[in-house]
Computed example of a mutant assay.
Amino acid sequence: MKKDFTKEQLKETVAYQAMSRIGILYKIEEMIHDKTPEEKYAERQKQSRPVLDAMFEWLHTMEDSVDRSSLIGDAILYTLNQEVYLRRYLEDGHLSIDNNSAERALKDFAVGRRN
């Protein structure tokens, strides 16, 4: 049975809060996408690192209390297990926040192979 949430209830969910924080990180990346790698590094240290630090601190507070067999529990634990890798883009202005461009490049190859 699907439960309908009010806007206020939705904003209190773990998933909504996590996506809000991730959205902030992507907005920062959008603002700095034309900058040099050195400028990206500096901006990420100033803007992104505090957001990411707060997000992981928040996730760690839920680590012991979350139902590990639930979908949100699984997502939290997966994210915490990947923390080192998810933070890596902060250390190098040449790196992207995600691997979307690499996946897009491979998609064309995979689609062509299927045809």
Rank of each mutant, 00 (worst) to 15 (best):
M1P: 03
M1D: 05
K3Q: 14
K3R: 14
F5I: 04
T6N: 01
E8F: 05
L10P: 00
K11M: 11
K11S: 15
K11D: 13
T13I: 10
T13K: 08
V14H: 04
V14Q: 04
Y16H: 13
Q17E: 06
A18I: 14
A18C: 13
S20N: 12
G23M: 07
I24M: 14
Y26N: 10
K27I: 01
E29G: 10
E30S: 10
E30W: 05
M31A: 15
M31Y: 09
I32Y: 04
I32Q: 03
H33E: 11
H33M: 12
H33A: 09
H33S: 11
K35A: 07
T36L: 08
P37A: 04
E38S: 11
Y41N: 03
Y41M: 09
Y41V: 05
Y41W: 08
R44P: 04
Q45N: 08
Q45E: 13
K46S: 09
Q47M: 11
S48R: 00
S48C: 08
R49G: 01
R49P: 00
R49I: 06
P50R: 06
V51I: 13
V51H: 01
V51D: 03
L52T: 02
L52C: 06
D53W: 03
A54S: 14
A54W: 02
A54H: 04
M55D: 00
F56L: 07
W58H: 04
T61W: 01
M62E: 01
E63P: 03
D64H: 12
S65I: 07
S65V: 06
V66M: 06
D67N: 13
D67H: 04
S70T: 04
S70A: 04
S70L: 06
G73P: 02
D74Q: 11
D74H: 08
A75T: 06
A75W: 01
I76Y: 00
I76E: 00
L80W: 00
L80A: 02
N81P: 00
N81D: 05
N81C: 00
Q82A: 05
E83A: 03
V84Q: 15
V84E: 15
Y85K: 12
Y85T: 10
Y85M: 13
Y85A: 15
Y85Q: 12
R87Q: 10
R88Y: 15
R88H: 12
D92Q: 08
D92F: 09
G93Y: 06
H94R: 15
L95I: 08
N99L: 11
N99S: 13
N100G: 10
S101H: 14
S101P: 12
A102G: 14
A102V: 13
E103K: 08
R104Y: 07
A105M: 11
A105Y: 13
K107T: 12
K107P: 07
D108R: 14
F109M: 15
A110V: 15
A110G: 08
V111Y: 13
G112N: 15
R114W: 12
R114T: 13
N115C: 10
N115Y: 10
N115R: 15
